[in-house]
Computed example of a mutant assay.
Amino acid sequence: MTTEPTLGVILAGGLARRMGGGDKPMRQIGGRTILDHVVERFSPQCDALVLNANGDPGRFAAFDLPVVADTVADNPGPLAGVLAALDWAAENRPEIKWVVSVAGDCPFLPRDLVARLHEARMRENAALAVAASGGRTHPVIGLWKVALRSDLRHALVDEDMRKIDRWTARYPLATVEWPAVPVDPFFNANTVEDLSEAEGLAKIAG
């Protein structure tokens, strides 16, 4: 675990349109839900873990995690989930100054995610850090400063900002690259076909 107290948030507020709706993290890979895989890899890296999701929180009761809903209306996207986690940390765990967000449909997350994001942020004197693999950044997989929550709320509510990389471009940003072979750690299951591919990848992901 990193020496910096860190809250992990699993973003599960998506509408899963390409899978016909429902909760993508509750689909199964290898006989377990994607969310089970995410929690197993992510939880040991964090001081606390919350789940960002809207609607009835009872559907996630088996995971015994606080379920934090968006505080900005009309499903504005993952930035709203990040803001909800920053607000939750400030109100419930004021000793935690950092939040790491991950997508709820990424079953092969790296086990050194939080440590490497913090290392890059400190090394480069950055305000934020983001993950990358295969030459592509993953804006949803990021390290966020709780102290920036008012700025983020302003961007979301007053500026109607939706794209994560538009907001992060305002700050010094560290980018951390992971190898994409033999398995891209940020593979995400967006479609039914992705679920089939993930079944095979799970055998070599370790």
Rank of each mutant, 00 (worst) to 15 (best):
L86T: 01
L86C: 01
D87M: 05
D87Q: 13
D87Y: 06
W88C: 00
W88F: 02
A89I: 02
A90N: 10
A90Q: 05
E91Y: 01
R93F: 12
R93E: 09
E95M: 04
E95L: 06
I96Y: 04
I96T: 14
K97Y: 01
W98C: 02
V99Y: 02
V99G: 00
V100Q: 00
S101W: 11
S101D: 04
S101N: 03
S101K: 12
S101C: 04
V102Y: 01
G104Q: 14
G104A: 14
D105M: 08
D105N: 11
D105L: 05
D105H: 05
C106M: 15
C106W: 08
L109C: 12
P110V: 00
P110I: 00
P110F: 01
D112A: 12
L113P: 15
L113Y: 13
V114D: 03
A115D: 03
R116G: 03
R116A: 05
R116P: 15
R116L: 09
R116V: 13
L117C: 09
H118E: 11
H118A: 11
H118N: 11
H118P: 14
E119C: 10
E119H: 15
A120Q: 15
M122G: 06
M122Q: 11
R123S: 00
R123Y: 00
R123K: 02
E124T: 13
E124W: 05
E124Y: 14
A126C: 11
A126Q: 09
A127I: 09
L128V: 10
L128G: 05
L128H: 06
V130D: 10
V130E: 15
V130T: 15
V130N: 10
A131T: 06
A131K: 09
A131N: 09
A131L: 08
A131P: 13
S133N: 11
S133A: 14
S133E: 07
G134W: 04
G135T: 11
G135A: 09
R136P: 00
R136I: 08
T137W: 07
T137D: 12
T137K: 07
T137F: 05
H138T: 06
H138R: 02
